[in-house]
């Protein structure tokens, strides 16, 4: 049967937020710029990056995602997210290892209401005619620099974004413990480009994904979209296969 994750649970929960309630209402963020850079990763550590509930894809992948909202219900913000591509049973998913967000209402909401593993920082999403990029610095060190190069327009319906499985400490039914929280935003895309993927800097330790190494570019996309962050519908025990450990709320 497929390879299961075997990540150290302590490592998985290092940046995991606490969600005091799973009763989150959906929220739409208008006209968000979305950069997604997808790479194949070194397969020797693919199982160590995921909890037992999840399987690595064949081949294993990582998603670098940059979001920038210039306005909207959470105000202006930028967030950079690193995810490991995976499967929850038969469903395509991504497991965020860490996210860096500008300080403000958005950082708090993303962390507390949808379980993003947020660290406050200064990610920068840049839009040029020949490329779009996301960059994150930790002090004087660039810990992430990823780009879409040579954008060409594609159909708004050509893109597929996969849902996230966010590790969060959840207080539920009198017990506080880590769960995987399924976050499946809806994307209403109004403009989309595709181009070559390029990662120029990536510090796997900073992103809480030891030994994760991007090795082969797949593709990058850049869109403008209305993103609806969902009401939480499912959680999953990170230590059990998703097919048996998933709980509908």
């Amino acid at each position: 049967m497929p390879i299961n994750g075997n990540a150290d649970p302590a490592l998985l929960t290092r940046y995991a937020p606490t969600m005091s309630s799973l009763d989150t209402e959906a929220l739409t963020l208008p006209d968000v710029k979305v950069l997604q850079v997808i790479y194949e990763i070194d397969d020797s550590v693919m199982a160590e990056l995921l909890p037992p509930a999840l399987h690595p894809t064949i081949p294993p992948t990582m998603h670098v995602i940059g979001l920038r909202a210039d306005d909207g219900p959470l105000g202006a913000f930028t967030v950079a997210i690193v995810r490991v591509g995976c499967r929850a049973a038969v469903r395509p998913r991504g497991l965020p290892t860490r996210a860096v967000c500008t300080e403000g209402e958005a950082a708090t909401a993303l962390e507390e209401r949808w379980g993003f593993p947020i660290t406050i920082g200064e990610p920068v999403l840049r839009e040029r005619y020949d490329r779009q990029s996301i960059e994150v610095n930790d002090g004087n060190v660039t810990v992430l620099s990823a780009q879409l190069v040579d954008p060409v327009p594609i159909g708004n319906g050509d893109l597929l974004y996969t849902a996230g499985m966010h590790v969060a400490t959840v207080e539920r039914e009198g017990e506080t413990r880590p769960w995987l929280v399924q976050v499946d935003p809806e994307f209403e895309v109004s403009r989309a480009d595709r181009g070559s993927a390029q990662i120029d800097a990536f510090d796997s330790n900073f992103w809480d994904a030891p030994d994760l190494r991007p090795v082969y570019p797949i593709v990058a996309s850049y869109t403008t979209a209305n993103i609806t962050l969902p009401k939480i519908r499912y959680i999953c025990d990170p230590m059990q296969p998703a097919i048996s450990g998933t709980v509908a709320l």
Partner: peptide, 19 residues
Amino acid sequence: SFGYLAAQLLPVREVHPTR
């Protein structure tokens, strides 16, 4: 078993948007 195995692979559409 068949469906579970198939699901672990990467369809083009999931990672490489194209008409």
